[in-house]
Design a protein around this nucleic acid. Structure first.
Lengths: 333, 333
DNA sequence: TTGAAAGCGCTAACAT
DNA sequence: ATGTTAGCGCTTTCAA
């Protein structure tokens, strides 16, 4: 029952009593077929349960119109980005081919599978590959790196002005009267270096060079929790954290230790992930502009493919501070 | 520079001075080529940066060896499952084609794109489609539903014995002396009905029918937070929660309200997601056996494709209680 | 507006 | 062990 061959374009053509070419035209919604023919073809296709074979289609047309996306399954922020990419791609006529990185499936493997699938361009979310590897890849087809900076003339980059993001955070805290402002960093994670630098710059600008404290953190809740425990002994009045996940871990430890937020410590996250927006977390955070970033990434990829002129290799999207409930004045009451 | 045609099998053949067939054989690592030939072909392929075109390959061989996976980008537990599916698929020679459901990309769309890609079987993670829709799909190719039950002879199901999972949770709590045990449920989410039923059964079995309390919850932290707030007024000594995410919201609200966990309330989650394992959360939870479930799902799909005999339509995997720090005796001291 | 024919890159069947 | 031929399902000329 299921073994019967799936209907092909030829089957539809036969049933509708027209040529394959016409069916092809109708299925692609191209001009060049009469109204009556169109109707008959669609009816036949429907009756047979015909689905075009995208492989054959793309093989013949020589293009796949496929954008390969490499993302980390474990990163909630990547989920937000992929969601945005789907939306952005829909408007362009390109499709997305997802390839995940997992603990057992590394980045090279994820990339190779996309190359075999003949993706025309690659969009990599916070890739860990070296610039050299990315450059070599970019020699073969357009590569757009999202949410990480890469110093190479061959790769396009779309990222948030992360340093600026930390300026916003520190300015906000300083404006509230904070002076002892610590930073929990992201180690070698994409964006971490820029955020660290932004923190340093801003502290200096506020004349707080001697109050700078950078604690090793990471991407996850437990990284944040660990950092927060060291925070308890030598307590600042405010802390900026690498990302929202990490900040959640910080909040959790502080709350359990009976340290009031924002009463005793103010906390600022990064990403404005769905986590931060939760009513009970209500985290002040630096928002990355996901819709813009993803739209730009897709546009950049398709521009390259279509030979459109491209101004800058790197597009830097401004961050935005979202003030919620985890930040308050340094000396309340 | 990038416009030059990608090398094809023919190019490699020419360069190696052999026929296309030989190259094909070598690239697929099939027997039927001499050692010296093999070496020359591989060298030529390497030199040209040749990548086989999987589309052409599959078009010709008539099979795609592709398993389509529909998953929700917003669900951390789905990320765990997809991770497991990749691992399971690797051992079988099938590849995964991911298709995500997002707020702007619904399940039918995710499925249609996989059908166009000629996936041979579909693995759906907690699908929201009706049994009728799934059955219609299953008439066209093998469908394996993961983490949800579907009453239809045409669809394969791999799921956790969710009712049994709640038995474990309630037994554990009752064993600790708890009697006022509430349940925060998952509404219409996949698995929620079974867990609710499991809770009811277990409460009855323990003679606690009159202490049953089911609070409306959901899948997310904020659902849990909302439920927890109602919990504060009429406080039970223990609560079982639909999933870990929701339980996290519960914990957060309780902690902020100064309610001791497990001192005053014990909390049990569900899934044993990475969330639960975080040292600072340390959530007692019901673990779903992800490696087994994913291996079974892939095996079921491939068995159907290869016409292997299949015993049961539905495979139910036993859950396992993981006792951590959020549960304790009902009357401490 | 319609149809016939060629061929995308590959593999399978059949030679040699 | 190696080469030749045909054709997967489709789109794209090109001609009618």
């Amino acid at each position: 029952m299921r073994d019967e061959r799936r209907p092909t374009l030829t089957d539809v053509a036969r049933r509708a009593g027209v040529s394959k070419s016409l069916v092809s035209i109708v299925m692609r919604d191209e001009p060049g077929a009469g109204a009556e023919t169109r109707r008959r073809v669609l009816e036949a296709a429907e009756a047979l349960g015909y689905q075009p074979d995208s492989r054959a289609r793309l093989l013949r047309s020589g293009r796949s119109r496929l954008l390969g996306v490499v993302f980390g399954l474990q990163h909630p922020f990547h989920a937000d980005l992929v969601t945005g990419l789907y939306t952005a791609a829909r408007e362009t006529g390109y499709e997305l081919a997802l390839s995940a990185v997992t603990p057992e499936r590394d980045e090279p493997e994820a990339i190779t599978s996309l190359l075999r699938d003949r993706c025309e361009a690659l969009i990599l979310l916070g890739p860990r590959s070296t610039a050299a590897v990315l450059a070599r890849l970019a020699a073969r087809r357009p590569v757009v790196v999202l949410a990480r900076s890469v110093r190479d003339a061959a790769v396009d980059v779309v990222r948030t002005a992360d340093a600026r993001g930390l300026h916003l955070a520190v300015d906000h805290l300083a404006g509230l009267g904070h002076r002892a402002i610590a930073h929990i960093d992201g180690g070698r994670a994409p964006g971490a270096a820029d955020r660290r630098r932004g923190y340093r710059d801003a502290m200096r600008r506020h004349g707080l060079s001697d109050r700078m404290t950078i604690l090793p953190g990471g991407l996850t809740e437990s990284d944040g929790a660990a950092a927060a425990r060291t925070l308890l002994t030598d307590r600042p009045t405010a802390v900026t954290v690498f990302n929202d996940r990490c900040a959640t871990g910080v909040l959790d430890v502080l709350t359990r230790a009976g340290v009031g937020v924002p009463g005793e410590i103010s906390v600022v996250g990064y990403d404005d992930s769905s986590l931060a927006r939760l009513a009970h977390v209500d985290l002040t955070t630096v928002a990355q502009d996901v819709p813009s970033m993803t739209r730009l990434a897709v546009a950049r990829a398709t521009d390259r493919l279509e030979g459109a002129p491209v101004a800058r290799r790197e597009v830097v999207v401004p961050p935005r501070l979202v003030v919620r409930g985890t930040t308050g004045p340094a000396y309340p009451g």
